[in-house]
Nucleic acid binder design. Structure first.
Lengths: 143, 143
DNA sequence: TTAGATGCAAATAGTTTGCATTTGT
DNA sequence: ACAAATGCAAACTATTTGCATCTAA
């Protein structure tokens, strides 16, 4: 690492969990953050390769797995089958609408789930740390 | 088709959407219904093969895609990376808790999202038909 | 009868692994 | 200094495709 860069809070989380801040990891994180999530592994691979072709595919996958295991990202399924889409989990939660016709993603804030989460924690004796909420339907252009 | 069997409501939906009720399709549907969803494609392949080894892999995948496109099932991501898990969407929605430690799935009813959905439809001019809600956290045994 | 679906096997992704080398801390 | 992480390329898995055949409607 030759340059001194701003470390994103997520990079700090990585380091605090005892992992090294390598070029490969910071680049992957950077790509995800610059695209606000919703990237397939293929897209991450491509972006990373564009920024630094010396980074190997394997490291990208290893980083995605690592970030997933730390709940920094969450793999999700959008379209039909195949590739997952990696979603950043800013505060441990994420929600969006997927248009089942054009596959557009519409983000929205305030999902109002905290009450539901609290009730579930109480009733089922679980400890919830995050959630993913996807609505499916038709967007304004497709309805 | 030699036997007269009860057609599940989902099979009826398939037929009403203009698709043939073939042995391969009915078998896949059967497997999913008997396991209440949460099967990976590999598990579906295995079960189908056990029931009728003459059904080809390709047809299983084609059926999973078809069921997905009809919103009868929804691919979802549970553990780290790789294979999706197919979840039945009984009434167009599904919700569960994933234990991030032991990967146990805890189902629950009544997610109380209809009010939120209605509000979003109004505000964003979308038409919502279903949703998937996943909570992440620790189950009672892991907390 | 016939468009739609199938099974097969080969082709194509997509992801992981082993290992010698490099790099953060 | 040294455990942790890397890049490479080969091995593996998982999924898709093309096509002749079959079958539900």
């Amino acid at each position: 690492m030759s340059e001194i860069e701003e470390l994103s809070p997520r990079a700090v989380r990585l380091r605090e969990a005892g992992h090294k801040l390598t070029n490969a990891r910071l680049t992957v994180l950077n790509v995800l953050e610059n695209h606000d999530g919703h990237l397939t592994s293929a897209e991450v691979l491509e972006q990373v390769d564009q920024i630094d072709p010396s980074i190997g595919r394997a490291s990208v996958f290893r980083t995605l797995d690592l970030l997933t295991s730390l709940s920094i990202i969450r793999p999700t399924y959008m379209n039909s089958s195949m590739t997952p889409t990696y979603v950043l989990m800013p505060d441990g939660h994420h929600h969006h609408i997927v248009c089942t016709n054009c596959n557009r993603i519409i983000e929205f804030e305030n999902c109002g789930l905290s009450a539901i989460a609290a009730e579930l924690e109480e009733r089922l004796h679980v400890k919830l740390t995050g959630h993913l909420l996807e609505f499916y339907g038709l967007c304004d252009k497709c309805s």
